[in-house]
Amino acid sequence: MIRYRDTVVSTGCAEHELAKAEEMLAAFDETRRRVKRRRHRYPTGHIYFISRPDDPSYPVKVGYTGASLYMRVANVQVGNPHRLDVIASCEAHYTTELKLHLRLGEGRLLGEWFARSELLQEAMSAAKGGRLEEWLGIVSMPPDPPAPVIEKRPARGTERVLAAASRRPTSAKRPYRPAAAVDTPTGAR
């Protein structure tokens, strides 16, 4: 298992497959660092699968966007001679992309592009049905309980100064002076 903050991801590795689990952890950390820089503005958005709808062997770009899906397709289309389209998508939190990339890791070609496989087809079907997080095994965690409210005590001596101030009448002719200056005999400063 990979644990990161409130996220728990299964690597699918047995205890004797430590090297494979460490590779998956390294891939998770690399993706998390790459994604961390650009995702904070849009915590919820869409996971998308973009490819050529007419070619079942063409690679699939699996990513996340907090903006419009079709603007994202237009950005990916630039420089690509083949017509691309959204094959599947679903609403999700941006951390879901990290878990999805980890799960599809063996089929990664370059960056966010993956070779078509049965596992990728299952992910696309789950996304079309709105069950991607369930398919990934993501369990929604309850929110943290609110922090207890701690009443702040006044600073030391503040109570005495406020009590003295409340006993003394004040006016524009007679401004407030601290109690220590008031109680001293006249002329003895």
Rank of each mutant, 00 (worst) to 15 (best):
R37P: 02
R37I: 11
R38T: 15
R38D: 13
R39M: 15
H40K: 14
R41T: 13
P43L: 11
T44W: 09
G45V: 00
G45L: 01
H46K: 09
H46T: 06
I47G: 00
F49I: 06
I50M: 05
R52A: 09
R52S: 08
P53F: 12
P53E: 12
D54F: 10
D55S: 13
P56N: 08
P56W: 04
Y58Q: 01
P59G: 02
V60P: 00
V62F: 03
V62G: 04
V62S: 03
Y64S: 07
Y64V: 08
A67D: 11
S68G: 05
S68R: 12
L69G: 04
Y70A: 07
M71Y: 10
M71V: 12
R72F: 07
V73I: 11
V73Y: 01
V73S: 01
A74Y: 08
N75T: 11
V76W: 04
Q77D: 02
V78M: 08
V78W: 03
N80M: 09
N80L: 04
H82L: 09
H82S: 12
I87N: 02
I87C: 04
I87W: 04
A88G: 03
S89C: 11
C90E: 07
E91R: 13
E91A: 06
A92E: 00
A92M: 04
A92F: 00
H93R: 08
Y94R: 07
T96I: 01
L98M: 11
L98G: 00
L98W: 01
K99L: 12
K99G: 05
L100A: 08
